[in-house]
C-alpha cells in the first residue's frame, strides 16, 4: 500500500433497497489512485451496487464515501456497463462524444476528442457506423471510447466483456491494460471471472454475498505489462488458484 491518500475510501457502507434487500453491509474499502482494482464475487454480492455507489448513481444507506484527493467531478468518472448501452440511432462518433456533448463543449472539440477516443480503442474509420452495423466486440469498444473520452480519473467497469467470445475478450483485456498503463487512471473492474481478474488487476477484492461485503483482498504480484505467454505461465496459474480459493472461501462464508 502506498502512503499517499487513497482516491476514494468507503467506510462501513451499507445499501438497502426499497424492498428491504441488503445489497451491501459494513463495506470497508480504500481504492488507491492509479491502481487497477478488480472486484471479484458471485452474482448477487452487490458488485454492481458498489459501482453505482462510486459513480454517485446511488447513495449509501449507511456509512460514508470519502474522496481524500477531492471528487473527480461529473466528467471525472467513466462508466462501462455490461451491455454496450449505445444509442442505436446515433453513429459511433456521436455515441463516443456524448459525454462531451452533455457537458456543452464546442462541437469541434467534441468531434476531435471523440475521433481520438475511437482511434484509441482501434475504431478509426468506423466513426460513421451505426451500432447495428458493428460486431459485439466493436460495440463494446465504442462504449469504452465513450467512457474514456472525458479522460476520467476513475473508470468503472461492470462486467463489460462478459457477453463477448473468449478470443475477443482476451484481445480487449490486453487493449484495456495498454490504455490504462501510463494513463494515471484508476480502474475498478467488476467481474465474476477469476481468470479475467487475475490477468487484469494489480489488486483483487473478493466479495461475499448476502449481504455484500469484502471477504479478502489479494495483491496480484505479477509484472505489468503482462509478458507474452503470461496466460499459460505457471505464475498465472498459481495466482488463479489463489484467487479461486479465496472466492470459494468467500462463497462458503
Amino acid at each position: 500500500m502506498t502512503a499517499a491518500a487513497p482516491l476514494v475510501s468507503l467506510g462501513g457502507v451499507a445499501r438497502r433497497f426499497g424492498n428491504g434487500t441488503l445489497a451491501l453491509a459494513g463495506l470497508d474499502l480504500a481504492i488507491e489512485a492509479g491502481e487497477f482494482l478488480s472486484i471479484l464475487g458471485p452474482s448477487g454480492c452487490g458488485k454492481s451496487t458498489l459501482l453505482r455507489l462510486l459513480a454517485g448513481l446511488l447513495a449509501p444507506s449507511e456509512g460514508r464515501i470519502d474522496w481524500p484527493r477531492g471528487h473527480p467531478g461529473r466528467r471525472g468518472i467513466g462508466f462501462v456497463f455490461q451491455d454496450p448501452t449505445l444509442m442505436p440511432w446515433a453513429d459511433a462518433l456521436a455515441n463516443a462524444r456524448l459525454p462531451l456533448r452533455l457537458a456543452g463543449l464546442p462541437r469541434a472539440e467534441q468531434e476531435a476528442r471523440g475521433r481520438a477516443a475511437l482511434a484509441a480503442v482501434g475504431l478509426a474509420g468506423f466513426e460513421r457506423a451505426y451500432p447495428r452495423e458493428l460486431s459485439g466486440g466493436m460495440r463494446m469498444r465504442v462504449s469504452l471510447a465513450r467512457a474514456l473520452v472525458t479522460r476520467p480519473a476513475l473508470l468503472l467497469m461492470d462486467e463489460p466483456f462478459a457477453a463477448l467470445d473468449e478470443i475477443t475478450r482476451h484481445r480487449l483485456n490486453d487493449e484495456l491494460l495498454a490504455l490504462w498503463q501510463g494513463s494515471g487512471m484508476t480502474v475498478v473492474f467488476v467481474t465474476h471471472s477469476v481468470f479475467e481478474s487475475v490477468y487484469l488487476a494489480t489488486r483483487i477484492v473478493v466479495m461475499a454475498a448476502r449481504p455484500g461485503r469484502v471477504a479478502a483482498v489479494l495483491p496480484v504480484a505479477a509484472p505489468m505489462p503482462r509478458p507474452p505467454g503470461f496466460r499459460t505461465s505457471a505464475a498465472y496459474a498459481a495466482l488463479c488458484r489463489e484467487a479461486s480459493a479465496a472466492l470459494e472461501r468467500a462463497m462458503a462464508a
Binding site: 453505482r52 459513480a55 454517485g56 448513481l57 461529473r74 466528467r75 468518472i77 462508466f79 456497463f81 451491455d83 448501452t85 444509442m87 440511432w89 446515433a90 456524448l98 459525454p99 456533448r101 452533455l102 457537458a103 472525458t150
Partner: peptide, 28 residues
C-alpha cells in the same frame, strides 16, 4: 434504455438534454 438514462444522469444531463437526445429518439 435504463442504463442509458443512468449514463445521462452520470454525466449530469439536463432534463432537456435527456428529452432531446435520449427519450425523443427512443420514442421515434
Amino acid at each position: 434504455d435504463r442504463n442509458l438514462e443512468e449514463l445521462f444522469r452520470l454525466y449530469g444531463a439536463t432534463r432537456w438534454q435527456a428529452l432531446w437526445l435520449l427519450r425523443l429518439p427512443a420514442a421515434l
